[in-house]
Design a binder for these strands. Structure first.
Lengths: 341, 341
DNA sequence: CCACAGGGCTACAACGTTGTAACAGCCTCG
DNA sequence: CGAGGCTGTTACAACGTTGTAGCCCTGTGG
């Protein structure tokens, strides 16, 4: 019941343990005839290598951790699925953690303390900052996804947030909107991601000669539907409300559309809406959502490759910054002919 | 860097390895004074037990696998988050797998072959059937979530699908709908879950003396938005289209509402819609969705407890069937005053 | 004063794997 | 004919932990 061991296979095939080990891993020189005999014995006994023993011996478990602030947020669920897929094609397994955005928890995971058997960590940080991470003792290979700060000493995988935000804004300007609000600016301590998106937004406004009204950038604590709806209500209470909103996540956009709907506004006629993330539901919302689509598959593959590279080609190489692609998907919420992506 | 071992702590504290091991696990008899000395050494060296060595020795890894058909489906993402939380409070970790609904993959995972270091498996099956599972060799403790068939030899965690479907249907009848369609019936090989929901639906119709029109139950292959939209279009092409739809998932309902919208229908005025799953986005859709809400937290806790129970109190107890609670959440899509849940 | 209990601690052997070193046997070449 | 080089194989010692058995004390009761 408890599974055959190398020893059992070896006895059955009439060879030494080490020869079986070599066959299993395709290493060392083994005569074709013995190889076949061993493979036969393996099949008969249904041998499966013991991962723990292997890990104990080699120091490799083949497991990498993926830590996200909130697995139920569709963006992270979709990203997680891509990471799992990318890891599978590279022969390793993913252990998902849900940090809840708690800095202490993120730090614990970044240090590899969550489970000492993991080989590396992919972390999507939220509250973490560089001072906390500066002296992390245990040096587990760490890759940050869509990071919060440039200063954290680790590899980074991200998209060109500034360019993406600029493109989204340009699209709104092109369809004639001039009072463009932004939802997604935190009240304090803006992440690098947010700073870049604001920068792209302002660049586009400036290039078009459109003045920026700070009252059109209400503060938002999280990237949730509830916060999007709340921010939208603030905007709609202005004496001179916006004719477009650029939301830094699709969930914010979903909440904003909900609030606009309750306020009796039509999207896109009265209010154009652009999101960010391209989560699946945005294709099916009513109206479907124009959004910036980061290439999640590429992000996942870059991240998994980066962490595996650091695990094998070991740790001291300089930290890299890897950029994945993105696209602006134009749908109904900005009033173009519905393309039904 | 590579982490301290029991041996290092032992040398530092001037005791034997075994004494340190005893202190770490709070077992055996250790004098208070040595205990303090050991704890001090542990803190100084930042000792963390090596999970693999422990697993190799004890046969327990503290890791359970959760396999779902599709992690990007919000229901499964939300369920996964609950399972992770439940496992954390019970001191174990969760490894998430994405089977894609592939029966072969599900079988592999049900047999514990995905990774031999896992202690137990929570599986949400889609394609698996009992004949495949009958002679699974390796006996990893297995718990099925919302299963496909009663006959599979394992513990089951589910909700009362029949009662839930009946309640949803009764609600539609109560608000005056008479031509009620159902979306979610597969073209063949209906799962136990689907069978029960159909049963609850028909029971309610029968009790109200409303005749059942089989043309109002189009076939659907998957529980996706696209399938929901396609099924809805079929229904809208009928000469006598429905005035209500009961969808077996919120995603189906989302697709159905999308199709209804494109067809120029108003929800709930022209068409009332009820979903199943209570995923977060259903609170924010336009209109918000009336839906059956399974108690996901309870499901997760029952499942984790069940698998842990089987791991420790070992395997041969008779298989149990555990039922979690559910609720019907009435929102805008069935026309009541919007309660903004 | 001896036997014995039991508290507090330690030595040793596993768990299943892999890296290292080495060993036969054969062939080739000088 | 001996040195050297391959090829295929094996013995052995780790990796870090925990279960078992047993040790040395000190204190107590006969």
């Amino acid at each position: 019941m408890a599974g055959a061991r190398l020893k059992d296979v070896a006895e059955r095939a009439g060879v030494s343990i080490k020869t079986v080990s070599n066959v299993v891993r395709g290493e060392g020189r083994v005569a074709e005839q013995t190889r076949r005999r061993v493979l036969h014995a393996i099949a008969e006994l249904d041998y499966q290598p013991n991962a723990s023993a292997r890990h104990l011996r080699t120091g490799r478990s083949g497991i990498i951790a993926l830590a996200v602030p909130e697995l139920v947020a569709p963006y992270f669920a979709e990203l997680a699925a891509e990471v799992i897929a990318a890891a599978k094609t590279r022969g390793c397994t993913v252990l998902i953690e849900d940090t809840g955005g708690d800095p202490a928890e993120e730090l614990r995971i970044a240090c590899g303390l969550s489970d000492p058997l993991i080989d590396g960590v992919l972390l999507s940080p939220l509250g973490l900052d560089e001072t906390m991470l500066a002296n992390r003792g245990r040096r587990v290979p760490l890759v940050l996804l869509g990071e919060q700060s440039y200063e954290i000493p680790a590899d980074h995988v991200l998209i060109d947030n500034s360019a993406a935000a600029r493109e989204a804004t340009e699209h709104l300007l092109r369809i004639g909107r001039r009072r463009i609000a932004v939802i997604g600016q935190p009240p304090e301590r803006a992440h690098a991601t947010t700073v870049q998106r604001m920068h792209g937004f302002l660049t586009a406004l400036h290039a078009a000669g459109v003045p920026h009204d700070p009252r059109l950038v209400p503060h938002t604590r999280e990237f949730t539907r509830a916060d999007g709806a709340a921010a939208m209500r603030v905007l709609l209470a202005l004496e001179d409300p916006p004719d477009a909103v650029f939301c830094f996540s699709d969930l914010l956009a979903s909440g904003a559309m909900r609030a606009a709907h309750e306020h009796g506004l039509r999207v896109p006629e009265d209010l154009a809406v652009v999101g960010f993330d391209d989560i699946q539901e945005s294709r099916y919302s009513v109206p479907s959502l124009t959004t910036v689509s980061p290439d999640k598959q590429e992000i996942a593959e870059l991240a998994v490759d980066a962490v595996l590279h650091r695990i094998t080609n070991d740790a001291e190489a300089p930290h890299r910054r890897l950029t994945a692609g993105h696209d602006l998907l134009v749908r109904e919420s900005t009033g173009t002919e519905a393309p039904r992506t």
